[in-house]
């Protein structure tokens, strides 16, 4: 992984949409892992606590938004700044086999963990074969 990939990326607004916020919006890097029973999404959002994160599910589109804490201290002069604080936003399209009612979200150490359980119908069933 190169250093460039480790940097925060600024979110692109969809074409013909202008942002109304003053602060920058970043795309959080995510890991998505799938098992037989659920899909887990991990998103890095440093500076965001559990009260400043929103997870919305509209139709098939899951959107995560985080409001980052402003870290600029008062009464100090800036020596250098390698990152900016700002908001985070990213959307994902869900497949139909997710149990929407059972989605859970946990925020810890600047990482959002979403657990998206698969619907019972979508989970593989083992069929035992009996000897005739």
């Amino acid at each position: 992984m190169t250093a460039k990939e480790l940097r925060k990326k600024e979110a692109e607004a969809p074409t013909h949409v202008e942002r109304s916020e003053q602060c920058p919006v970043f795309v959080p890097p995510v890991d998505i892992r799938e098992s037989v029973s659920d899909v887990v999404l991990l998103a890095d959002m440093p500076g965001v606590d559990e009260n400043n994160v929103d997870v919305d599910l509209e139709g098939d589109v899951l959107t995560i938004r985080g409001h980052g804490e402003e870290t600029t201290p008062q009464g100090h002069s800036l020596n250098y700044r390698e990152y900016r604080s700002g908001n985070y936003e990213r959307s994902f399209t869900l497949s139909r086999d997710i149990d929407r009612e059972a989605v859970t979200a946990v925020m810890k150490n600047g990482v959002l963990r979403l657990t998206l359980p698969k619907a019972k119908e979508a989970q593989p069933k083992r069929i035992t074969v009996k000897a005739g």
């Binding site: 480790l6 940097r7 440093p46 870290t71 009464g75 100090h76 020596n79 700044r81």
Partner: peptide
Amino acid sequence: DFPAASMWTNEDQTLMTVELPD
């Protein structure tokens, strides 16, 4: 570089913030 950091100074101290999720 990783992790990204910012630094501020005044007469009494230097403050640093480092982005280090997880």
